[in-house]
């Protein structure tokens, strides 16, 4: 109900100005957007890489959280992080049904993910990554993650 109005406004702002390391790649409709993020400091885990995020919106955005995943192609790997599965699914409380708030927006989600990468030092995947990636058939928003730790 709100989605297209609100997204059209976000788009105007995004086209105007974005924080360093965040770029708008594609927003041809109000269903799916692509954003690129880079980590701005010299964290060896992520230096020189650009990561691509796919946002999928429902009609109820921003009351309902967008679905946000990393996508992989030749030039965009999935970043290594203990909360990011190797298929691009992200375990972050603010993207979760209960952690989301409608005052968040595409830009603030990108900034949160950027800082989640910046502050990470562990070169590892979440526990059970292989099994999860092999068996998961659910949409990210329907998965209820158990947050193993909130320190990262």
């Amino acid at each position: 109900m709100f989605a297209s109005k609100r997204l059209s406004k976000e788009l105007i702002k995004l086209q105007d100005k974005l924080p360093p390391g965040i770029a708008l790649v594609k927003a041809d409709d109000f269903r799916e957007w692509l954003m690129d993020i880079r980590v701005m400091d010299d964290n060896p885990l992520y230096s020189g890489q650009t990561y691509r995020l796919k946002f999928t919106f429902t009609q109820s955005y921003p009351i309902e959280a967008p679905e946000v995943v990393f996508v992989r192609d030749e030039s965009h790997p999935i970043p290594m992080h203990p909360h990011i599965y190797s298929n691009g699914i992200i375990c972050l409380d603010l993207l979760d049904r209960t952690g989301w708030s409608p005052v968040h927006n595409v830009e603030s989600v990108c900034v949160s993910l950027q800082s989640m990468l910046t502050s990470n030092t562990k070169n590892e995947r979440p526990p059970g990554d292989e099994a999860f990636v092999r068996n998961n058939t659910q949409r990210p928003r329907d998965i209820s993650f158990v947050f193993h730790d909130n320190s990262v």
């Binding site: 297209s4 109005k5 997204l7 059209s8 406004k9 105007i12 109000f30």
Partner: peptide, 24 residues
């Protein structure tokens, strides 16, 4: 109606090619 609030209605069409998004 299409989400813009930033221009005078008389001249709105000058600044909003964005209406196309609505129809997709």
């Amino acid at each position: 109606e299409d989400g813009e609030v930033d221009s005078d209605p008389r001249w709105a069409h000058l600044s909003c090619a964005r209406k196309d998004y609505e129809r997709t």
